[in-house]
């Protein structure tokens, strides 16, 4: 089995079927590029893989282990009514809670998601496997660069630190101090890795978009995710800044990071990706190596998309 395998991802927003059965596979250290026109579902897929959206149906395997399975589709609900073979990870279904205030606007008219506490807990415990870099960076504007990178790691340490009085013992305090020091050093090293060693004390508003995105990459890396996801990381950047961000991503590949990149940068997908998926209308229309997808596309939709993306304006 592949390092990372995702089977049968389905997602509806209300009556709109956004993802209609996506499968993908990725080996360790590989870079997967997801391309496709707007509205094809690529961002939704990535958000499902990061649990920012809960898919209606999906089976996710990492390192051979089934880390997440869900089936909230109508047929499953019907068949499960008289069967009681719900696996441990699936017992979140059919229990009401939660319509998040931070749901995406396009989901507003959809039914509130049915997520149980157990499901939420399960998801939160699996989040650490995945890192996410957003199109709009989403740095914390009120913290400086260093704190943006260290915050989550420090909170994670505190969450696992001894509780109650034990927390205030001399040993625990010393250990904490040591750990915080290490996190800071790690953050500095990561920021140097992305070329921002000079900007530790700057605030995000003082940085260019490219620099902000590189901080966001360092922020995701400090938690050592198994898979790092990028959601159109350069769509908000001009060509020069795009290049500096893509260069960082290319360097990360050399370091052996496994990555999934949703992108409109065809050149990047061609040169850096090991695998390319072309999505259209919520399904994987074409997949393969960059050579296969870009040089010898089989599907008509892929051909049309690639031709369109290479067309210059005056050919219209």
């Amino acid at each position: 089995m592949a390092f990372y395998q995702v089977n049968n991802v389905y997602k509806n927003f209300g009556d709109v079927k956004v993802l209609k059965g996506i499968n993908l596979e990725l080996d360790e250290g590989q870079v997967l590029a997801i391309i496709g026109s707007s509205g094809s579902g690529k961002t939704t897929l990535l958000r499902c893989l990061n649990f920012l959206e809960i898919p209606d149906k999906a089976d996710i395997y990492l390192k051979g282990e089934n880390i997440f399975s869900i089936d909230n589709t109508d047929s499953a609900a019907a068949s499960n009514a008289d069967e009681s073979n719900i696996s441990e990870v699936e017992n979140g279904k059919n229990i009401q809670t939660d319509s998040e205030k931070n749901q995406p606007t396009h989901a507003k008219k959809a039914k509130p998601e049915k997520i149980s506490k157990e499901m939420r807990k399960l998801i939160d415990s699996k989040r650490g496997h995945f890192g996410m870099v957003f199109q709009s960076f989403n740095l914390f504007p009120h913290f400086n660069v260093l704190k943006n990178v260290t915050l989550a790691a420090k909170l994670k340490y505190d969450a696992h630190a001894p509780k109650g009085f034990a927390r205030w013992s001399k040993e625990a305090k010393a250990a904490r101090k040591q750990a915080m020091q290490e996190i800071n050093e790690k953050a500095v090293a990561l920021l140097e890795r992305v070329g921002l060693g000079e900007k530790l004390n700057s605030y995000p508003c003082e940085l260019s978009g490219g620099q902000q995105q590189r901080v966001a990459i360092a922020r995701a890396l400090i938690l050592q995710p198994d898979i790092l996801c990028f959601d159109e990381p350069t769509s908000a950047l001009d060509p020069e800044l795009t290049r500096e961000v893509l260069k960082v991503i290319r360097d990360l590949k050399k370091d052996g990071h496994t990555m999934i990149v949703v992108t409109h940068e065809m050149q990047f997908a061609k040169k850096v990706a090991d695998k390319v998926i072309f999505m259209a209308d919520g399904i994987v229309e074409e997949e393969g190596t960059p050579q296969q997808v870009f040089e010898h596309p089989v599907s008509e939709k892929t051909k049309a998309f690639l031709a369109e993306s290479e067309k210059s304006i005056d050919e219209e």
């Binding site: 931070n102 749901q103 709009s136 909170l155 938690l223």
Partner: peptide
């Protein structure tokens, strides 16, 4: 508040209390 701030906290594994209180 932009929803991206909540999402950033979420993918970084921060608890709801941490996101609300610190971010």
């Amino acid at each position: 508040m932009p929803k991206g701030q909540y999402e950033a906290g979420k993918v970084l594994g921060m608890s709801k209390a941490s996101v609300n209180g610190l971010v």
